[in-house]
Nucleic acid binder design. Structure first.
Length: 465
DNA sequence: CATCCACCGGAAGCCGGGGAAA
DNA sequence: TTTCCCCGGCTTCCGGTGGATG
């Protein structure tokens, strides 16, 4: 391999594809964009919010605002090592797995489990970045981060990895650049092109986040076996991340034998660690704008969510944005509480966005049921009845009960509902029973934003329940 | 303790939309 | 333009399930 170190130029960082997307940009967001992703771990310039420019139009006048380095409270931001709290052991285990890659050798595969917001992606990306930066001269390390909730089919995974690694700098002048389309080719062609791209690297670190959402684990096996089966000369190290504890035990045996990993399980943060994380980033805000109760309250809210640092960060940021938008000089307890409400509504709106209309109808049926029926839990059959009445009322297609069950499944996966099994005994049969985890009023409001459901009045929903 | 019910959920396959290559 | 392929949404089919009941 020729001209030196890492090919992954700083502009195309680990960040740009990934939890950036998970960072459901809150609708209480202020006017400025996300700020360019910053991979070097240094806080962005404190003048980074465009203050060095003067804008004449009073409509866009520059307020001081509560933030000074807003980038630092973005969910995808990968901080310096000394701002990463309580993950030292994990960092050192991962780095020893990746150590050989730095010298062009074969990195070990790693499987990481742990609940959401426990720093799995953050630490993986941090160590990967360190490895890439540390690589010895003339060794070319490719690295890529893939969120499998967005690219879940085999072809999508292969094509996305290929596209991310397909830097024109890796080619010689007279060489043809491999084209990697999104779709349209037979599977084996996608693989072939990926191997061609990988051949330009000595080693590659591939981070697969939310790997449990892959439609098939075949891709995992293919990547893990690539060197062994002479598909590519590039040494591939996979960091597979899942928030399902037993995911890697349940892989099909062939994949499991090809994909031998170092296993890591990330513990949730405790309330103190969350506070420490937040304090480690409080210089995102201007001096003195945070009132004393803000950080403890944000930490307390997220402690209710099993120590999810990602949600904490989002809440922290959103509270600031709310203060900014209302032109308040300080961030106060009330901002945090309202931000928490807004985020919950946003989460649900984001969930619905892009889902089929049938999902909205299904949500409407469970919202109506939980508003107007006495029972906490509602069995599938009853929900389906309500759903049918709703679709008939607005003259839309009605899906079969089997598909309806799949939709309920998706709702459960996205934590919109909670499902438990009930057995009515001889003759009563076995049922799944569902409970809404959100405020039904809020759900009605959000579903009604869709014009197709505009004809249904809240009062008429009572009939369906 | 076998029975029974009514739903559960995996598997397979269909269909229309959309993209790439020949 | 035609052919080939992927993909999401959907249906049909069918064996599996488990606790109150008789």
């Amino acid at each position: 391999m020729s001209n030196g170190t890492s090919t992954s130029d700083e502009s195309r960082d680990l960040d740009s594809t990934s939890s950036d997307g998970q960072d459901d940009r809150s609708r209480v967001q202020t006017s400025e964009p996300e700020g360019s992703p910053n991979e070097n771990g240094k806080p962005p310039s404190s003048e980074g919010d465009g203050q060095q420019f003067k804008v004449d139009d009073p409509l866009f006048s520059q307020r001081k605002g509560v933030f000074q380095n807003k980038e630092m409270v973005r969910v995808g931001w990968v901080p310096d090592g000394d701002r990463i709290v309580g993950r030292d052991d994990y960092i050192s285990t991962i780095s020893s797995c990746l150590n050989d890659a730095v010298y062009g050798g074969a990195p070990n595969h790693i499987s990481i489990t742990g609940k959401t917001g426990t720093g799995k992606s953050l630490v993986s990306r941090y160590v990967t970045r360190r490895a890439v930066n540390a690589s010895v001269e003339d060794i070319r390390i490719g690295h890529t981060y893939l969120d499998c909730s967005k690219s879940s089919t085999e072809v999508q995974v292969i094509s996305t990895i290929g596209q991310q690694l397909n830097d024109e700098d890796i080619y010689d002048e007279d060489e043809d650049i491999v084209k990697m389309p999104d779709t349209g080719l037979p599977k084996d062609k996608f693989y072939k092109r990926l191997w061609q791209i990988l051949d330009h690297y000595d080693s590659a670190i591939i981070i697969l986040d939310e790997v449990d959402l892959l439609k098939s684990d075949h891709v995992l096996m293919s990547l893990a076996k690539a060197v062994e089966s002479n598909d590519t000369s590039c040494q591939i190290g996979i960091i597979a991340i899942s928030n399902q504890i037993n995911f890697f035990d349940e892989l099909n045996p062939r994949t499991k034998s090809a994909f031998q990993t170092q296993e890591l399980n990330f513990d949730p943060y405790n309330a103190n660690q969350i506070q420490e994380i937040l304090r480690g980033r409080d210089d995102a805000f201007r001096d003195g704008v945070l009132t004393d109760e803000v950080i403890p309250l944000v930490a307390a809210f997220s402690a209710q969510e099993h120590g999810d640092a990602r949600k904490a960060m989002r809440l922290f940021r959103t509270a600031g944005e709310l203060a900014d938008r209302e032109e308040d000089d300080m961030v106060e307890e009330d901002h945090v509480r309202r931000a928490q409400d807004a985020l919950e509504k946003d989460r649900f709106r984001d969930f619905l966005q892009g889902t089929p209309t049938q999902m909205k109808a299904a949500c409407l049926s469970i919202a109506a049921k939980s508003l107007y029926s006495r029972d906490d839990y509602i069995i599938t059959g009853e929900l389906y009845d309500a759903y049918q009445q709703i679709t008939n009322a607005i003259d839309m297609d009605t899906i079969g009960i089997r598909r309806f069950r799949d939709i309920l499944d998706e709702m459960q996966l996205s934590q919109v509902i909670e499902t438990k099994e009930v057995n009515m005994g001889k003759g009563g049969g076995r049922h799944n029973s569902h409970r809404l985890l959100h405020n039904p009023e809020a759900i009605l409001d959000i579903v009604m934003e869709d014009s197709r459901f505009g004809d249904i009045s809240k009062s008429s929903l009572k009939r369906f329940a």
